[in-house]
Design a protein around this nucleic acid. Structure first.
Length: 868
RNA sequence: GCCGGGAUGGCGGAAUUGGUAGACGCACGGGACUCAAAAUCCCGCGGUGGCAACACCAUGAGGGUUCGAUUCCCUCUCCCGGCACCA
């Protein structure tokens, strides 16, 4: 073997062998247990970034480990190829989004291959391929037939200059990103998916998932289930006359029906029909309503926003007492939640309290919390706590639950209300007024209305050669696309020119990996591989993507396409890759950013960065702290540079050794050097060993204490690394354990035949332990250690139980819980013997100082604590 | 405001079920090799006191439980993430 480590010659050679032998193709049936691990598919932006490197390397390490453990593992890859950036790039460079996207995919695929990830490329999926998105369309139509897909109007951001709809991220400070024009809200018809129909199941089945608690909690909050009572506050006679044909009163929802006797007013949202009606002929109120509609977007200010309101002059009646209750417009009532109206109980709701105080409205205590005083002077937190009803007529003395039951019964008897569950979750609007996405397979016929495209005509193919100009949707300007005949009456009709949200694409791509060539949406292979055993991706997808994918899976199940309830059994949310940020203000007042390799940092006595200067001219620049790698801040590290300078293995090793995968990782050039240094040392160790000739690995025979300890360490490490890879998904500690083992190995100077046999064993197994992280160097070293065999065929090293047997063990000795020494005792020593050994220790004796121990705690295998 | 997660050397982090705090690495300091540098190798590296042996202090702050607490409980401070007037 070469005496030096040359990643640039090893890596391409190893990769060629893998490709030629189709080493990572996973069969769709096997006697081995299956394991399906997937990383969230990348957007083909142009080239890989460090976040991808981290994401796919975690996935790859799991692949190799579980393959060695005897599983049939599948690691597929695909491209989230639809979306806005392609349209923007198309506008900037005057190329069609399709061409741009496919070129990016080709380049990034090559990068993936040079990282050496064990991807089964025969299953590659790109969501912009008609063979993929036709099933988005097909499934959309099935959901439409079931009533899960429906049409209603929705609010969009409208740029009045470009005459186009803007995505939320294209609205900056209320203005269009291209035109700078003030963005308007417009109502247009859109398609929705009834995800709320699955709200309860989406909530309940979270409990059984092997996901981070944080993500589950975020989904729970997002779904936002609350149980309460919906009831009607009937209009007072004169209000009923004004509201004419409109229902019989104001509908409200409450989770605190026990406080119903404390109502002193009602509040409605600015958009509520009662407010609209009241504003007629009341310019002051109309102006206030306009003000409310405009505000209320800057979320951060909402919590501190002052409660404002105005009386409407409308009245409703208390359902039990028939007391007249004034209706106010309140800026704290949201039209989008519940019924857009609330019963106001200032006595026991903090918002209502603040409102009542401000406008001099009544505050009535109806709940008593034992031991706490009540006064209407200032809000106290216990006012909102559950308690016993007072001043509530027939409900007096009831505890919260009993009171709610009684109120619910009474409202039901009056026909005014009923128990109901309310969700925060809204239905999923999937229409996008964009070009680069899945066309919605619907035809709008002037006589028949919305008519689905017949299955036989799918896919509705997206023309790929259009170049958007930023004004309006290109599809809406392309008659050859939208002109069509109505499938029902044969008359002239127009296609829906909207496309689907790209979250549709990512809701089921992982199932298509299992059967990319299926003539149906999915086939039996999906049932074999699903549910996915491990999903890996960024925390930023904690809510939307993961919730939509769960919904989509349940919808597929209900259509009989697959028999699973949840798509992702385990989830790992990997942390982001960060780097230092350097900048300086330009003369014109802008900010100029500098890449970390352009600057030299200034470090204070404590080792903290305080500033920096530019390498090329020594001028001072500012240190802006740490942030995610981004193009605009110029602090990204190009994986390609890493591969060229150090090789893929160093890049892989670096991102895995720094910290646990769930933490953010700070880029450090020095640590990269350290990773490279380790791989060079590993190479040198194997080389030095083989210089003296290959040895047969140790199988038995008399050992010195030193060699026994080395073998003990080896087999302990095999156990630990397996646990770290397989159970804890903590690769940094696995790597540290192997480094410890190799440090001990380097201390061993014995060159006797038996020592060389142990050395062979240690080196072979260490290479296998590291193979999931650094497969290229591991392959090369394995070939040198075991000529004629192939690393990929090796199982995970077996633990030799005899190596773990110790006849003497070291125990920690404490006096009063403080470490005072160590003792060696026979492994089978009794409690009494251990105690005797400990008390005989000199240091222990010194601290015990002749006193009689009050108590001696013996923890077998660990420590002795003498209490005096 | 509510919910969730954190805080350990100069830095990244380790300590998995309450049992040796700081594994492993980075940076740094010293030395060897070299004409020299790089690379490589060896030694040191939480703080205070001490020549040293060693002792004391120390896991955001304060308290508690325990023979023993980074780990469990209570109070507080700060940081990160999510939601945000949710009735």
């Amino acid at each position: 073997m070469e005496s030096q480590y040359h990643p640039r010659s090893i890596e391409p050679e190893v990769q060629r062998e893998w490709a030629e032998s189709r080493a990572f193709a996973a069969p769709d049936a096997s006697a081995k247990p299956k394991y399906f691990c997937v990383s969230m598919l990348p957007y083909p932006s142009g080239k890989l970034h460090m976040g991808h490197v981290r994401n796919y390397t975690i996935n790859d390490a799991l692949y190799h480990f579980l393959r060695m453990k005897g599983m049939n593992v599948l690691f597929p890859m695909g491209w989230d190829a639809f979306g806005l950036p392609a349209e923007n790039a198309a506008m900037a460079n005057k190329v069609a989004p399709g061409k741009w996207t496919r070129e990016n995919i080709a380049y990034m695929k090559k990068q993936c291959q040079s990282m050496g990830w064990a991807i089964d490329w025969s299953r590659e999926v790109a969501t912009c391929d008609p063979s993929y998105y036709r099933w988005n369309q097909w499934f959309f139509l099935r959901l439409w037939e079931k009533g899960i897909v429906y049409k209603k109007t929705g609010l969009v951001n409208w740029d009045p200059v470009d005459m186009t709809v803007l995505a939320n991220e294209q609205v900056i400070d209320g203005r269009g990103w291209r035109t700078g024009a003030l963005v308007e809200k417009r109502e247009i018809p859109m398609w929705y998916m009834r995800i709320t129909q699955y709200a309860d199941e989406l909530l309940d089945s979270l409990d059984g998932l092997g996901w981070p608690e944080q993500v589950k909690q975020m989904q729970r909050n997002w779904i936002g289930r609350s149980e309460g009572i919906e009831f009607t506050l009937p209009y007072a006679p004169e209000t009923a006359r004004r509201m004419k044909d409109d229902k019989a009163g104001v509908k409200v929802f409450t989770t605190r029906a026990d406080t119903i006797m404390g109502i002193t007013f009602a509040a409605v949202a600015a958009e509520h029909p009662v407010a609209t009606e009241a504003a007629k002929g009341n310019p002051q109120l109309a102006a206030f309503i306009e003000e409310c509609k405009r505000g209320g977007v800057q979320e951060a200010e909402l919590a501190t926003m002052e409660k404002k309101g105005m009386p409407t002059g409308m009245y409703v009646l208390h359902p039990f007492t028939n007391e007249k209750i004034e209706v106010w417009v309140g800026n704290y009532v949201l039209m989008s939640y519940g019924e857009g109206a609330v019963m106001a109980v200032p006595g026991h709701d903090e918002r209502d309290f603040a409102f009542a105080k401000k406008y001099g409205l009544g505050i009535k205590q109806v709940i008593d919390v034992e031991g706490e005083p009540y006064s209407t002077d200032a809000w106290q937190e216990w006012y909102a706590a559950p308690g016993r009803n007072v001043q509530s007529g027939k409900y007096d003395g009831l505890e919260q639950e009993a009171a709610i039951d009684a109120v619910a019964r009474d409202l039901e008897a009056l026909g005014l209300g009923t128990r109901r569950v309310q969700y925060r979750l809204r239905d999923w609007g999937i229409s996008r007024q964009r070009y680069w996405g899945t066309p919605i397979p619907m035809v709008i016929c002037p006589t028949c209305g919305d008519v689905p495209v017949p299955d036989g005509e799918l896919p509705v193919v997206l023309p790929e050669d259009l170049v958007p100009d930023g004004s309006g949707s290109p599809l809406a300007k392309t008659p050859s696309f939208y002109q069509c005949k109505c499938p029902k009456c044969g008359g002239d009709a127009r296609r829906d020119t909207d496309t689907m949200d790209t979250f549709v694409d990512s809701s089921w791509y992982y199932m298509r990996y299992t059967c990319p060539d299926a003539p149906t949406m999915v086939d039996a292979r999906a049932q074999y591989w699903m549910p996915m055993d491990q999903y890996i991706g960024g925390i930023e997808h904690a809510i939307l993507h993961l919730l939509y994918a769960r919904f989509w899976t349940k919808a597929m199940r209900d259509l009989g396409l697959i028999r699973i309830d949840e798509p992702f059994t385990n989830l790992l949310t990997q942390g982001m890759v960060l780097n230092h940020i350097f900048s300086r203000r330009t003369a014109k007042g802008g900010i100029e950013y500098f890449a970390p390799d352009e600057v030299e940092t200034i470090i204070d006595a404590e080792g903290h960065i305080t500033g920096a200067k530019l390498k090329r001219d020594g001028s001072a620049i500012d240190y802006d702290g740490i942030g995610t790698m981004s193009k605009s801040k110029r602090n990204g590290i190009d994986p390609q540079d890493m591969i060229e300078k150090y090789g893929a293995d160093t890049a892989r090793f670096y991102v895995m050794q720094a910290n646990p995968p769930t933490d953010t990782v700070l880029w450090s050039d020095e640590s990269v050097e350290g990773s490279f240094r380790f791989l060079k040392r590993l190479w040198a160790m194997v080389h030095a060993h083989l210089e003296e000739g290959r040895a047969e690995r140790y199988t038995g025979g008399e050992l010195t204490t030193e060699l026994r300890e080395l073998r003990f360490k080896l087999h302990r490490t095999i156990e630990k690394v397996a646990d770290d890879y397989g159970r804890r998904l903590q690769f940094n500690t696995a790597i540290a354990a192997v480094r410890e083992l190799l440090n001990l190995y380097l201390d061993m100077k014995d060159r006797s035949p038996v020592a060389r046999a142990v050395a062979q064993e240690v080196l072979e197994d260490s290479v296998l332990l590291l193979a999931p992280i650094v497969p290229h160097i591991a392959t090369a070293l394995w070939q040198a250690l075991r000529p004629g065999t192939r690393l990929l065929d090796q199982p995970w090293p077996a633990v030799d139980a005899t190596a773990l047997v110790q006849d003497s063990i070291q125990l920690v000795v404490q006096v009063n819980g403080k470490l005072r020494g160590h003792v060696h005792v026979p492994a089978n020593a009794t409690r009494e013997q251990i105690e005797a050994f400990a008390l005989r220790d000199e240091t222990v004796a010194k601290f015990v100082a002749g006193q009689k121990p009050k108590k001696v705690v013996v923890v077998p295998g660990r420590l002795v604590n003498v209490v005096v």
